[in-house]
Structures are given as C-alpha cells and as structure tokens.
C-alpha cells in the first residue's frame, strides 16, 4: 500500500516536492518506534528523541572523514575523531548505541508509571541534549555536523519505514508483545497471571531505543547535517502528536498519524515556497504552515479524541476493530 502511495505521489507532485517526502517517511518511522514502547505499554515516553539523537550523532560523526573531523571537532575523544565508518556500519552502530542507551535508561526508569514516567523520560531528553551540546568530547556542541553523505533517498526512507513497521508488527504479535499489551489493559490482572511488567517494558523500551537509533542514522543521512536543536523539543512533541492524532493504541494508528501529519507538514512547508499541485501554483504566506498544522491537529483531536485510527489495526483481511489484545 505504501508503495502504491509513493507511486501515486509521483503523479500528483513535481519532482522537487517528491524529494521532500522522504522526510515524512523517516518521521513516521520515528512515530512507529515510540509506538513500540509507548503504544504497547501504555506509558508515554518523552525521551525517545534522545535515542534518535544518539543514533543521528553517532552516524553523523563516524561517517565524517577523520581529517575533516579534526578540523571541525577537534575536542572529540580520539577513538571518535580518528575512526571512519561506511554507511551500513553507521546504521548498525546507531542501532546498537540507541538500544544500549535505552537499556541503561530503561533499567532505571521503566518502573515508573504515568506522569512520573513522562517527566523522567523528558529529563533524559534534557540531559542528552545538554551533554551533546556542551561536552565537546562526545558531541558536536553548538555546531551542526556538516556534510554527512546524503544516502537516504525516497527508496531508502521508505525501506527504513517498512522495516520499522515489520519489526513493530512482529514484536506486537510475539509472546513478549502480547504480554506487554496485557499489562497495558490491566496491570494487576497481568501480574496475576505471572507477567513481569518491569521485564516486558524493558524489552520493549530497549527494542524501540535500538529502532530509534537506527532511524536517527537514517535521518542524518537524509538531512546531510544535524544540530542538537533539530532533535529536541519540537521533534519530540511533533512525533508524540502524530502518535496521538493517529491513535496511540494501534500500529495502524501510529503509521496513519505519522504519514498523514508529516505529509501535510511537508506540503505546507513546501507551500510556503510555492507549490505546483495539479499544475496550479499555490503559495502560502511565510510561517503559516505551523499555524495550519496545529489547527488541523486540534480539529482532529476535538472531533476524534481516540485518534484517526480509532483502535483499528493492520490485519490480513483489511482493517478490523481491535476488540481483544
């Protein structure tokens, strides 16, 4: 279906606009990552963009040539400064680091529930950003990482998204995924049948951290350069908003929310520059895209508080209401 969508897009939009749509695919992949943990466990995380950031900076720094790094980021630890990795290797490294970081964070934090969990994960985001921005031995500081090879094209972005959806789907259908979803529905009953909430949440948190790290790497290979502010508050809230607008409790909701909002977002920000749609030229006033996007999200939430998907899930025979876990 996604492939059809991509095909359809190419007929409607001009070449230049099409290029921007890989952004939508990558952002949607992030929404799917957050869904793996927050959607299945019911505990919201504001911290996942930290893992995206770790992945993005690891991939960005290691794909820079050593002499280039010496010139721009002279403070880095030698093992970061002197090594250089190929594309695929940076993706794997990013996933590994993201997963490892999520594991460490998760060991401490997945015991928390509700708002406490939300704020604690938010604190992780704050620390990650603060450290990357100021400790120049490991992070880029206030500068952007420049000149990262832009290997993420439309195809690669789409493949990354599909990979994330497939992993999320497999996890959700696995025994571990079902156990975690049981804790979301009724924590006490789940414990009553011997499910260990802590362990199940930690598995999901780590898996989604690894996925987020990977997506971060894909993201940086698409942006070409990245600064700490690009992977901080706005991205966090945008990704969460997509998840909620789509519908927090289903993978279909996460995907739908991510795709629809990020496509609209892309269209709107292109629209500010002037957009040819069906051979008509449209131009939106500058900075109006954020206003329209926020208003759209508000309208969706007011009219469909349970999200666009409204509990529906991917299924082999079309979409069905998810009545059981």
């Amino acid at each position: 279906m996604l492939v059809l969508l991509a095909g359809g897009l190419s007929t409607v939009f001009s070449q230049s606009v099409q290029l921007k749509f890989h952004n939508a695919f990558v952002i949607t992949a992030m929404v799917v990552c957050v869904y793996v943990s927050s959607g299945n466990s019911g505990v919201i995380s504001f911290g996942h963009v930290s893992f995206v950031a770790i992945g993005a900076f690891a991939a960005g720094l290691f794909s820079m040539k050593a002499q280039q790094k010496g010139a721009v980021f002279n403070d880095l630890f030698p093992f970061i400064k002197d090594n250089h990795l190929g594309n695929l290797a940076t993706l794997i490294l990013a996933a590994a680091l993201g997963g490892l970081y999520a594991l460490v964070v998760g060991i401490a934090l997945v015991r928390l529930n509700g708002l406490s969990a939300g704020i604690a994960t938010f604190a992780v985001l704050g620390i990650t950003r603060n450290v990357l921005r100021n400790w120049t031995k490991v992070g880029p500081g206030a500068k952007s990482i420049p000149g990262v090879e832009e290997t993420t094209g439309l195809t690669q972005a789409l493949m990354a998204l599909i990979l994330c959806i497939v992993v999320a789907y497999i996890y959700q259908r696995s025994a571990a995924g079902r156990r975690l979803r049981a804790t979301r529905e009724d924590a006490i009953a789940a414990q009553g049948v011997g499910i260990r909430i802590y362990r199940e949440r930690l598995i999901a948190f780590t898996l989604s951290g690894a996925m987020a790290g990977f997506v971060g790497a894909v993201y940086v290979h698409f942006l070409g350069s990245v600064s700490t502010d690009q992977v901080y508050l706005d991205l966090t809230f945008l990704v969460l908003a997509m998840l909620v607008v789509g519908g927090v409790d289903s993978l279909w909701g996460a995907t739908l929310g991510g795709l629809s909002i990020s496509f609209i977002n892309t269209l709107l920000s292109e629209g500010e520059k002037g957009l040819s749609l069906f051979r008509q030229k449209f131009t939106l006033p500058t900075s109006s895209s954020g206003i329209i996007l926020a208003a759209l999200m508000a309208i969706v939430l007011l009219t469909r508080p349970k999200g666009l998907a409204n509990g529906r899930e991917f299924g082999l025979r079309g979409f069905r209401r998810r009545d059981s876990i």
């Binding site: 809230f237 500058t286 900075s287 996007l293 208003a295 508080p305 349970k306």
Partner: peptide
C-alpha cells in the same frame, strides 16, 4: 478524553500560538 489526547491538544494550542508569534 484520555490524558494523552488532552496533553497533545494543549501542545497543539501551544504550537499554534508560537507559530503565530513567530509569523
């Protein structure tokens, strides 16, 4: 509505107002 929905709604309002201010 669910807490997450309300939270995102307030975020949307915040984002809206900040976008207007930026514009």
């Amino acid at each position: 509505a669910a807490p997450a929905t309300m939270l995102v709604m307030t975020f949307a309002v915040s984002f809206l107002l900040r976008s207007i201010a930026q514009k």
